[in-house]
């Protein structure tokens, strides 16, 4: 199915730019390779830099200026507890966001796609407008909300100011407009007949959503999960603002602490931490990749 998707594109390429089908494909490959080169160079530098004392371009240099100077010193932070706690916090924020955004978006997106209720249109446009507000503009207002949440008995200690829960809550809220609209789009694309059939077969509304509709939008859920996980994993501004002056810190904040204004910065160590931060994302991507590719294959076959 991916083949049939690629075909119209290369056909669109062919007649205008080149003569034959083969040359068209060659041109496409050349274009892709050229545009990917800068990115590849960047990653190559990243890997080389983490393993050497210093670099000049892509070449690792030792103290005397000759080629060489291999070292593992830049990775010393691994044995330090701070990075693991930062990583754990990043993980908590990301997972909480995937769960929170996932539940709210799949249920909200379904309702907005299928039900008619007062305020539906206002809600849809409202979320879009809200999404246009950058998080920076809301920081102060959110601060008051978090302080108030922190005052709630029992759960206040987990979701207030200066907590991972509070950060996750804010990040979920900021991510929801995207999530709801994305899932609504996926539900919109599903035929009504399938859920009508399920209703007639005896299923309740909830069961229709859970057993019939959700399995059809799995690629959408995977995409949303990946976006949300990345957003949570790379979250900087919100955690930096609302966990200030405590030991609660996540990976991006930790990384930023390495770049101090006063002392000389060890860029090779920053590169190593950066690379380290990417590893879980790569693993996560490997798991969702197949589902993600399905998005373009149309998701459900046979209907």
């Amino acid at each position: 199915m991916t083949v049939s998707q690629a075909a119209p594109q290369s056909q669109a390429f062919k007649p205008k730019l080149m003569g034959g089908k083969k040359t068209g494909r060659r041109f496409a490959y050349a274009f892709l390779i050229l545009s990917i080169v800068p990115i590849l160079i960047g990653y190559t530098w990243l890997v080389i830099a983490t393993l050497s004392t210093r670099t000049e371009g892509l070449l690792p240099r030792d103290a005397e200026g000759g080629i060489g100077g291999f070292t593992l010193r830049n990775w010393d932070f691994i044995s330090d507890g701070a990075i693991w706690s930062a990583m754990f916090n990043s993980f908590l924020i990301a997972v909480a966001m995937v769960i929170g955004v996932g539940i709210a978006s799949t249920s909200g997106g379904y309702a907005l796609s299928r039900f008619k209720f007062p305020g539906r249109k206002a809600f849809l446009t409202g979320t879009l407008v809200l999404h246009a507000f950058k998080a920076e503009m809301l920081l102060i207002a959110i601060f008051f909300v978090l302080r108030w949440l922190g005052g709630i008995p029992l759960i206040g200690g987990y979701i207030g100011f200066n907590t991972v829960g509070g950060v996750a809550l804010v990040m979920i809220a900021l991510e929801l407009p995207l999530g709801i609209w994305l899932m609504k789009g996926f539900f919109d694309a599903l035929p009504w007949d399938m859920e009508r059939a399920a209703l007639i077969d005896g299923a309740s509304r909830f069961r229709v959503w859970w057993q019939i509709m959700l399995p059809q939008v799995r690629p959408g859920i995977a995409a949303l999960a990946l976006f949300t996980f990345i957003a949570g994993w790379n979250a900087y501004l919100v955690p930096f603002t609302f966990t200030i002056g405590t030991k609660v810190t996540n990976m991006p904040v930790f990384l930023n602490q390495l770049i101090s204004d006063t002392a000389p910065v060890n860029w090779n160590q920053v590169a190593a931490v950066g690379l380290f931060q990417m590893i879980p994302l790569i693993i996560f991507f490997l798991f969702t990749q197949e589902l993600l590719l399905n998005i373009y294959a149309g998701g459900s076959k046979g209907t």
């Binding site: 035929p191 007949d193 399938m194 009508r196 059939a197 007639i200 019939i212 059809q216 046979g302 209907t303």
Partner: peptide, 18 residues
Amino acid sequence: PKDRHVGMVFQSYALYPH
């Protein structure tokens, strides 16, 4: 619908693909 004891066949078949 679930309590009406009806069965329905659709033009699009409306089968559950999963």
